[in-house]
Design a protein around this nucleic acid. Structure first.
Length: 859
DNA sequence: AATCTGGAAAGATAC
DNA sequence: CGGTATCTTTCCAGA
């Protein structure tokens, strides 16, 4: 049996002193981080709460007994937002964003009882309230700190990254559940002016009059509307800091690493600081699947990862080295930071009235985290095209589900469906390039989306954003953004908005069109990895993270006043130039399960299959985790943050630890230099390698017999197509059935089973009747239960791992839950033995079908 | 002239 | 640490 080695990527002490190029003018950062130099210069200071290293907004704790405080004037909220109580809903969402822990005096390990972190309340607490609660929620009483004397260089306190290193989840991620529950401009210290009003909120958008069915969304997560269609289209962008060279000819524009964290002399902006993101996390790509999720073969581990990954909220200073958060090198352009009263947007207006325009802007900024996530860059006076005329939809709920929430594609009579899938390849364009056009369909046309079951006459707004396509839960892709395409060839009206850091294309769905839309207005923009990785809280890495999915959402007003949200994701789309040409891509498989005896021919459909393509079947190894080195040592190897599972001598998982430490700049090590410090995670073993017979866009392979012919329950395995050393497709799932089981097409009866069959790998397989990745969540039996209010905000969290990864250190005994239960069998999916994909398994069945009372409190 | 596209050079990063 | 393979990002040119 061949065990995959521990994820080198994760254990690799990655560039603690990475010099990341500061966002350049013209770069995407222009679109996301805007702060007039005057203000930005002060960015590094979360002065508002010196005592609170971590940003309050990142921690939305609300004591269990403390009623969440809906924003004043907050209209009936979305879901439990306005339920007022500390519903589990918010509890699970708001808290999961751990946040900063006090500044680290030195590298250390903090061990905190997970449970202890669980009390944090809902996201609706005013920051002040949060502060009051901080003592108990920010840091669990059970927190233990283990100083590491030997280490000298420490992260900037503000850079403490609670982000888990095991997931690519973007901590602050765009429209994360956390933020979503937090997207109200509360007057809080957090909103202090240090967050520059660099952004002109929605109001600057000429398209204000555009249908506001989604207006709420705009306000909520979106500090402002996105700039014009093309990032580079805006003249202002180029003009801010002077037009940048078309090419980063100078090293200044390239990422440079140094051993001591000293600033690259050439860096125009400066200061490199040890990267708090040093801990490299891998975004699920074909090469990383094993090294990430799969390695943690224990349900508990995965669950823990899920729990931890969604969090990662960071403080204002988190993620981006303080020094890196520098003022724009040049004077702020005379950009009119026009900020109009939020009230301009009826219904969608948060209690902004309490703030002067500037504050409102601040609020949005901070909510969106724009200024926080990049080096400050002056805000450009983006302007929207003239608003289209379309009756605004009736709902104005200010609280729509965050983009990283997993939602069902259908509920009750409604079903959001992708009638025509996009092509599996679409070369995304960089900001430095011109648009590469809209995503097309394989047939040559464009993707088509339709909402079935909607009989009202009110138009609805379809949201589209670029989501991830890895084996984890669907979430906005940090490195890709949807790009609005306009022009004569575009027939579909669209509008661009920004929810947190995620651009969202809003496309009206009209009853007269049968609630059907041709998506010919959506291109894909690639953001520079270096820029995104620099973003505060971002823990994903962009390298080889080039697959995305188009994610469509629709919010249907219900008679009850609540909003029913549905979501569907497309098949994965490979966005890189090279990959699109060379990497094998599996889009579908003729069989998804077969008896252990194997022997049957399975036809894979896809691209780039070669005559010598091999299909390799792998099985996840038993969940055993070992720490190969003492924690302290692990820390030194871990970089800024690591997580580790502790196992007893028998390999049984006992608890999860989230380890935080700064990586001594002077001790930067290469991953290879300290192999002994890696965690050893028996990962997967290959049990079947078959050479396929390539045909046109298809590959025929014989299903190898399973190593264990006596299984009594279905066993899910994975396989991938390999064209060479580093040319592998993403993992696909396959289920072996007990030999005596009659071979009947295993049609998942529910999402749970579906998850077993399709697995978390939401990558592209889908000749199956129902693509797993399209099913983001178990479908509730009735619309009511599907109301977002009824969903746990963080479906990633397994029922057994409800505790949000709040404040940094975490320690939760999982031995009694996930691990013991999640050994094998159908329950694995729920227990997280499977990679947490944007699929049912990660969703709490209970929350979907039998939501806790607290989750469905009427508004 | 502007927009798409495909190709590939140059540089960065991984192995 | 150095060489090579890959991957990313930018540039070029033709449709």
């Amino acid at each position: 049996m061949v065990f995959a080695e521990a994820d080198e990527e994760q254990c690799k002490p990655e560039m603690p002193c990475v010099l990341r190029r500061a966002p350049r003018p013209g770069s995407h950062t222009e679109h996301y981080s805007y702060a007039p130099p005057s203000v930005s210069s002060a960015l590094p200071l979360p002065v508002a709460h010196p005592s609170l290293p971590g940003p309050c907004h990142d921690l939305q704790p609300s004591a269990p007994g403390v009623p969440a405080l809906p924003p004043a004037g907050h209209p009936l909220g979305y879901g439990g937002a306005v339920d007022g109580g500390p519903s589990g809903y918010f509890l699970s969402s708001g808290n999961n964003r751990p946040n900063g822990t006090p500044a680290l005096e030195s590298p250390r390990i903090e061990i905190t009882s997970y449970l202890g972190l669980h009390h944090a309340g809902g996201p609706f607490l005013h920051d002040a309230d949060v502060e009051d609660l901080l003592p108990s929620c920010r840091r669990s009483p059970s927190t233990a700190t283990l100083p590491l004397p030997g280490l000298e260089a420490y992260r900037d306190p503000s850079c403490l990254s609670p982000a888990s290193s095991l997931s690519s989840r973007s901590c602050n991620s765009e429209a994360s559940s956390y933020e979503s529950g937090h997207s109200y401009p509360y007057a809080s210290p957090q909103t202090s002016p240090w967050q520059s009003p660099c952004v002109s909120p929605k109001t600057t958008d000429p398209e204000e009059a555009f249908p506001r069915g989604l207006g709420a969304c705009h306000l909520l997560g979106s500090p402002r509307h996105s700039p014009s269609t093309s990032p580079r289209a805006s003249v202002t962008e180029e003009s801010w800091l002077g037009a940048r060279g078309s090419r980063p000819t100078s090293p200044c524009n390239k990422r440079k690493y140094c051993l001591n964290g000293s600033q690259a002399p050439c860096s125009p902006r400066g200061s490199p600081a040890p990267s708090p993101l040093g801990s490299r996390r891998v975004s699920g790509t074909e090469d990383t699947w094993l090294s990430t999720t799969t390695q943690y073969t224990s349900a508990a581990i995965v669950a823990a990862i899920n729990a931890l990954t969604t969090d990662g909220s960071l403080g204002p200073g988190d993620g981006v080295p303080t020094k890196a958060r520098k003022t724009a090198p040049e004077p702020a352009p005379p950009v009119a930071l026009k900020v109009e009263p939020a009230g301009d947007e009826p219904g969608a207006t948060p209690p902004a009235s309490d703030f002067p325009p500037e504050d409102f802007a601040f609020q949005h900024l901070r909510k969106g985290g724009f200024c926080e996530q990049y080096l400050s860059v002056p805000q450009a006076p983006y302007q929207w095209a003239k608003p289209k005329s379309l009756a605004p939809v009736s709902y104005m709920s200010p609280s729509l589900p965050a983009l990283d929430w997993q939602l069902p594609s259908h509920s009750g009579p409604y079903e959001l469906q992708i009638e025509v899938q996009p092509k599996s390849h679409h070369r995304a364009h960089y900001e430095t390039e011109g648009s590469r056009g809209a995503v097309k369909a394989s047939s040559g046309g464009h993707p088509v989306v339709q909402l079935h079951g909607y009989l009202e006459t009110e138009p609805l707004m379809l949201q589209l954003f670029i989501g991830t396509a890895d084996d984890r839960l669907l979430r906005p892709h940090a490195f890709y953004q949807v790009h609005r395409i306009t022009g004569k060839t575009v027939s579909t009206t669209s509008h661009e908005a920004v929810l947190s850091n995620t651009k969202v294309l809003e496309i009206p769905l009209l009853p007269e069109n049968n609630m059907r839309a041709i998506i010919d207005c959506a291109g894909i923009l690639k953001l520079r990895n270096s820029d995104i990785e620099l973003r505060k809280g971002e823990t994903d890495i962009g390298r080889k993270n080039t697959r995305v999915r188009l994610v469509f959402r629709i919010h249907i007003p219900q008679p009850s006043g609540r909003m029913l949200s549905l979501q569907v994701a497309s098949n994965p789309i490979e966005c890189s130039q090279r990959s699109a040409q060379e990497l094998p891509l599996v889009e579908g498989q003729s069989t998804d399960s077969y008896p252990v005896v194997g022997g049957k021919k399975m036809v894979l459909s896809g691209h780039n299959f070669l005559q010598d393509s091999k299909v390799i079947f792998v099985e996840k190894a038993p969940a055993r985790i070992f720490l190969k080195q003492p924690i302290q040592y692990l820390l030194t190897c871990a970089g800024s943050l690591q997580q580790a599972a502790l196992a007893d001598p028998c390999g049984h998982l006992h608890m999860w630890l989230e380890l935080k430490a700064s990586w001594p700049a002077s001790r930067r090590l290469r991953g290879r230099e300290s192999p002994q410090t890696r965690l050893v995670f028996p990962g997967v073993s290959e049990f079947g390698i078959r050479r396929g017979i390539a045909a046109l866009n298809s590959l025929v392979v014989e299903i190898p017999p399973f190593r264990n012919q006596r299984i009594t329950s279905p066993v899910q395995v994975s396989f991938y197509v390999c064209n060479g050393k580093r040319k592998r497709s993403q993992y696909q799932h396959f289920t072996y059935l007990p030999a005596n089981v009659p071979m009947i097409k295993m049609e998942p009866t529910d999402d749970f089973e579906s998850s077993l069959a399709c697995g978390p790998v939401s990558q592209g397989l889908s000749p199956l009747p129902r693509p797993c990745y399209s099913q983001q969540l178990a479908v509730p039996p009735d619309p009511v239960s599907c109301l977002v209010a009824g969903f746990a905000p963080c479906p990633q969290r397994s029922p057994m791992m409800p505790a949000p990864p709040s404040t940094s250190p975490k320690l939760q005994d999982l031995s009694s839950v996930a691990y013991t239960k999640g050994v094998s069998g159908p329950s694995l999916g729920h227990l997280g033995l499977q990679p947490p994909a944007a699929d049912a398994p990660a969703v709490q069945p209970g929350s979907a079908e039998q939501p806790p009372p607290a989750l469905l409190q009427p508004q």
